[in-house]
Write a protein that binds this DNA or RNA. Sequence first.
DNA 1: ATTATTAATGAAAATGATTATCATAAACTT
DNA 2: AAGTTTATGATAATCATTTTCATTAATAAT
Lengths: 154, 154
Amino acid sequence: MPRRHCANQRLREQVGRWTEPRNVILDVLSHSKGHLSAKEIYDALYITHPRIGITTVYRTLELFLRLGFIQKVISPDGEAHYELRTEGNKGHHHHLICLRCGKIIDYQDFADEELELVKKTEKVLTQKHNFLILYHNIEFLGLCDKCRKDAGDI
Amino acid sequence: MPRRHCANQRLREQVGRWTEPRNVILDVLSHSKGHLSAKEIYDALYITHPRIGITTVYRTLELFLRLGFIQKVISPDGEAHYELRTEGNKGHHHHLICLRCGKIIDYQDFADEELELVKKTEKVLTQKHNFLILYHNIEFLGLCDKCRKDAGDI
DNA sequence: ATTATTAATGAAAATGATTATCATAAACTT
DNA sequence: AAGTTTATGATAATCATTTTCATTAATAAT
């Protein structure tokens, strides 16, 4: 388990045993900027750790999700992609998703208002629906630069 | 094809033939508030139109999506749900999604700022990434009222 | 340290949503 | 009414994700 987390009692309990596969999978996630699918993680792993099965990748991603280490983004075709969540609000970003090729672009240049608005909205919703909000996704869907050009056949 | 659309030349071309299945599927969508999965639509149909196959449901949803009649929301487990898109901004809403049971709650009480902010953000993003934004999703993920209570076993 | 206990792993099979195939049927055209 | 084209639906294929279960590795107990 990453050093910054192992002091956290609640996490320690949920984690159970911190194993090599978990270590390596976290490593792959932290050394790639993108939003990796389970398959992509498995492939990246396979080079150095061919013994690690894709089942473990799925199980580990589920664990990391529960622990809040990562975030899940589902692309338009329904495939799940995962990315590391950064500490605090540093690195927090939203997504631009291309409906044609599935490309995911991050953007981070929020207006200051954006964060405030989200906070405010969360508060209202929490009260009104008694919903415990853990995180949010904001995504803009459309066509990316490339696909705009060769999108005659949509 | 719904009367308000049949004057639209571009739509007419994309639609081709307006058939009974398409009519019925649109009907199911417009008579339910929720976010229906393909299976749910198929089941609803089956009572009155057992001859309509689930393949047609999928194909028709894809068509409606292309035409902009409906919107696709993918739940945390990756299953797609579809809902009618309303004219203009009436009925525009965002989602609260429960990570445990997958329940989707709509909310519509935006701050006025929300719409403005979205517009502003869209403009910035369009310019910066040359991305054509068609629509956006804002969703808050967490635990719903019910699941908060019996969530001991997460 | 060694053994016992328990949790994590991985191979293989199962699941389940979505897509592709293709022969048939329905809708338009002439 | 006959011919042409498009949509349909049954079936099979695909593909991401889950389940199952025997094996292995990590922690606890001795």
